[in-house]
Design a protein around this nucleic acid. Structure first.
Lengths: 234, 234
DNA sequence: CTTGCACCTCACGTTACGTGAGGTTTTACG
DNA sequence: CGTAAAACCTCACGTAACGTGAGGTGCAAG
């Protein structure tokens, strides 16, 4: 009946019982004149209920409501709780999947490269919708790991080649430039799959993150040059 | 370069930047003489990294370690993080499944009954291992909803009948008592499936939660009486 | 010159307790 | 009955990652 007995019998810490008393969730019905808490049958029952609900991950506030009086719709509270749990699960699974993909893909990368990869991933989140990311993921699966790596290695070479022609002042309608532009658009098409939404997202991405574009050797002049080449081929 | 600009450009709140400064996660390289924070390129880059890692649900402490210097094994940190996420997901799925089962089964119950059902569930957790609970769940599936309900309705009648004989002083070897005891053991066998571990868990359960036993009309005398009847039948 | 906005530094609130600090009461033993 | 250990009490700070004022200063525009 005293707090220590309750603690031993239920496995709840004395501090926790103090806490429940403090917030008015479970207050002992009596106190000795020395101020020691005395719990009765009622309170033990209520404590069991509290513990049970806590095991179900309800907050103390929710528990107070659920036990407070049945005018609260318990089923509604539970359904809300389930909904929140579902959301959390979905989020965490998404996260987990991403981190595992990263681990698998960048297993041999340095810490810096690894963190950079995470950065790129979150940047993608900013500019692409969830559906677009799904589409891109499917496309990557379609091509397979090796193809994607080849593409990633081809881009810098292609960009460098175009830049050279541009700086040399070659006309965009020159066959050499035309060939490069054709390959350029092929790679773009392979990545975007012709999806217009994705194409505009790509543009927004490079516009919003110029430092990424710069890192890859891209800039406004270069893309304008390619645009001209493509236009003149029609 | 001033804190408000950073806040607008990155979407991070001013307070958050203050916080990161406070804990030394991201401090501006300079201050104006008035004490205004001035951020440089470096800090913006670091902030992006912080935001990215935070999106991945890393704690600020972990982020500090990851960015602190690459002597920390980033891969190990990430693997640990994944493991923790997995655990949380598993727990929440377990919880969610239980709550949904409750919702489905007690959809039309009152709040009190509902909470009591949750209590019973957590009591079971205390006395049965996970495997035993799985076994019991499978057994319930085997019998189906209706059979289980029939069993649940039969128990009180059976207990009452035995109690009557006991109070009347009927000898445990009397055919009437023998018949009741036989049915008793059949029901026990249906529930436990003859699993010895489960049988002892049941005993521990009723021993540890005497109020549940009492609520069902069970007590030491009664079970001793049944034991005698069973023994005398051999 | 004053208005208003951006900036600053406290400092409390949030969740569910853990962990002492420092003091009183009860209990057990000789 | 005296004393010492065990159990009880009330503060009160710490946790994670900020939100939200309160109250005061700096700076550019009208």
């Amino acid at each position: 009946m005293k707090i220590g007995d309750i603690a031993k019998r239920t496995g709840i810490s004395v501090r926790t019982l103090h806490h429940y008393d403090e917030i008015g969730l479970l207050s002992p019905s009596h106190r000795t004149e020395a101020g020691h808490r005395v719990y009765g049958r009622e309170e033990i029952v209520r404590l069991q209920q509290i513990v049970s609900l806590r095991q179900m991950a309800f907050s103390l506030e929710q528990i107070r409501e659920l036990l407070g009086r049945s005018d609260f719709d318990a089923h509604a509270v539970v359904r809300g709780h389930i909904a929140r749990l579902r959301e959390q699960i979905a989020e965490q699974q998404e996260l987990c999947a991403r981190l595992e993909a990263l681990e698998a893909h960048y297993a041999s990368a340095s810490a810096d490269e690894f963190i950079q990869a995470i950065e790129v991933m979150t940047m993608f989140d900013k500019y692409y919708t969830k559906e677009q990311l799904d589409t891109l993921a499917k496309r990557r699966e379609m091509f397979g790991e090796e193809k994607m790596r080849e593409f990633q290695e081809e881009w810098p070479r292609l960009i460098a080649a175009v830049k050279e022609e541009m700086q040399r002042g070659t006309d965009p309608s020159d066959p050499k430039v035309q060939a490069l532009a054709k390959r350029w658009m092929e790679l773009v098409a392979a990545f975007t799959g012709g999806d217009e939404g994705i194409q505009s997202s790509v543009k927004n991405f490079y516009r919003g993150e110029p430092q990424v574009a710069r890192q890859q050797g891209l800039d406004g002049d270069l893309s304008a040059y390619v645009q001209k080449a493509v236009a003149s081929s029609k």
